[in-house]
Design a protein around this nucleic acid. Structure first.
Lengths: 345, 345
DNA sequence: TTGAAAGCGCTAACAA
DNA sequence: TTGTTAGCGCTTTCAA
């Protein structure tokens, strides 16, 4: 399909070595030879065989991303945006992106080990860090480069980018409190997802700082889907004294909660406040628009990827652990009077 | 990190060739030698160097997927599910998945050419086919294997899987007509996305078959986002004689339309019907739940990937062009009286 | 300024 | 049953 150096060498009457160096623009090749070689290469549409080059360079120039898929109906607006961030940055530096999908578990670890040992990738991007994360433990153990999106318990010394979930939830809490809410409940994901814990901690802390409690009955765990939020909110609404505000740990759950509330004939924002976290595109166009916390997912993807590449290149990156402050995006679902125009940026 | 054949050869006192064949379980190697070699390989945690193997095999065992990203805030629930389908199937057959992101355009074609010529991938999965698709034209021209999700204009003879959008929309239209609607409008994506055309055609045809017209003013083009649907619906609602039903060409637009309708104080389902297409997870949990057309995206991902792999392996696959009949998923947004239990599977 | 030779790690044809 | 040789396409000493 595409010519090889050998073919160019044959046609130019030069050696393979010379051709290689001419194309790499070494300065120990005569201008004349370079011209000739380049012309022929152009003519033949020469493109280097990457596998061959990589074998010899002993580097795959490839970044691995193993998506932890939960169930067959895997659908998360978060991932595609994040993927675009990583992908674009990787492309900018000439890296490839190798994507796999594996539900968390032993087989997932097999895939990591396999990719590491077969030198298929130079480094990994880890997403959805877990409380104690076998992926991170393994990669640290074998000294394989990676950058994570998210922290783990114990805050080991590895490079990561994360959004300060506690701060984000604190902002949510303070906003709700300022609006007069005293009975605030939380839709939280499974406890082994640490990022949820930070958010929950931030909420609890902010409430405590304001003399408010967060009783156990006001913390409902479910998965991160609309369905989970829907069911969780139903549980909360059945209580004898239901909350006046529900702070969900992500937007999907918040949207599910809104559905549950509306199905009971209540009005979100007026009868009960709902807030999310993530600011997925959907959030601005829910009805009412969802008050939430904005995470610059695309930017995070780029940043994680760039940090990893710097790591791979041995440039000790300036920042090894980055904590981003999320930003409150106030719309109508919390009951704050905001005009449509202001809420829709 | 991981040992090489050479190292195993050294330790066992055998030749590299013998070791290679022992591990590949050739039957011209003595049981004794096999045992020895395997033991040492195990001990050293041997994993073949995939780049080396692939260079020699002249095959990358890799499937390419270049996601056409539109804008930085790329977020499409469709892609993650599709990706999981492809990824899982690829893994099953031992293929890698190489993912890139590129907005449509000349640079995108460069990436295709580069990946083809550098033999980085053995074949491509094409998504979001376009009316006349330069990717498909190019790949056909150079005879490079690929399978598309979607058709193109002229229905060239290439392998694809697609959902019969016309049929899906026909079912929507017939359902709406049965409910008594006569003024049915359409939220359609940009005309260069062919799949939208099929859906539009199906709608028009079904209406015509029932003696109804689809005036130009009832076809609003916008992008495939909630924002697009929101704005499109606003336009439709401002008309002197607004439609009584809005059939959106995807769920995101339908959800946006619902927001626009509700913002005007109207009730979806009662005052105006809304339908979508795709059946994203969100659809079941919108308020009211969205009547839509189910596309088995995950299955399609798997199928596309499997067809490509069969192509790569020279097994002339049974089906080269697959058309899937989508299935109506009736919920409340169309005004049909359906109990919550029936609508939530 | 150029080329021969070696080697990245693997597989395969051919001999022994 | 095993080893020698060659080669995948490329880069990089080292000599000429």
């Amino acid at each position: 399909m595409s010519a090889t150096l050998k073919e160019i060498a044959r046609r130019t009457g030069k050696s393979i070595t010379t051709v290689s160096r001419a194309l790499a623009d070494y300065d120990d090749v005569s201008a004349e030879t370079k011209g000739l070689v380049r012309r022929v290469a152009e003519e033949l549409n020469y493109t280097p065989h990457l596998l061959a080059r990589r074998l010899q360079k002993q580097s795959s120039d490839t970044i691995g991303l193993i998506l932890p898929t939960f169930g067959p109906r895997f659908s998360d607006p978060f991932f595609s945006e994040f993927l675009a961030g990583i992908g674009n940055m990787a492309a900018e530096y000439g890296y490839d992106l190798l994507v796999s999908t594996q539900p968390p578990g032993e087989q997932e670890m097999q895939v990591y080990r396999q990719k590491v040992r077969s030198r298929q990738v130079d480094g990994f991007v880890i997403v959805r860090t877990r409380r104690t994360d076998p992926r991170i433990r393994y990669l640290q153990e074998v000294g394989f480069p990676f950058v994570a999106f998210g922290r783990t318990e114990g805050e080991l010394n590895f490079p990561f980018v994360d959004v300060d979930g506690a701060l984000g939830m604190r902002r949510i809490a303070e906003h709700l409190i300022a609006l007069g809410h005293r009975r605030i409940a939380c839709l939280a994901p499974p406890a082994d997802l640490l990022f949820a814990e930070y958010r929950l901690m931030g909420l609890r802390q902010a409430l405590a700082d304001n003399g408010l409690a967060l009783p156990e009955s006001f913390i409902v765990r479910s998965d991160l889907t609309e369905q989970g939020g829907y069911e969780g909110a139903q549980r909360l609404l059945q209580a004898a004294e239901p909350p006046t505000a529900i702070a969900a740990c992500n937007d999907l759950m918040a949207l599910g909660a809104m559905s549950a509330i509306q199905e009971r004939g209540l009005q979100v924002g007026r009868d009960i406040a709902v807030t999310g976290f993530d600011d997925i595109p959907m959030a601005a166009h829910a009805h009412p628009p969802l008050t939430t916390v904005r995470q610059p997912i695309y930017q995070i993807g780029k940043m994680v990827c760039e940090m990893l590449i710097q790591l791979l290149r041995g440039q000790d990156s300036v920042a090894r652990q980055v904590m981003l402050a999320p930003e409150l995006s106030v719309r109508q679902s919390c009951g704050a009077a905001v005009t449509g125009a202001a809420a829709r940026p």
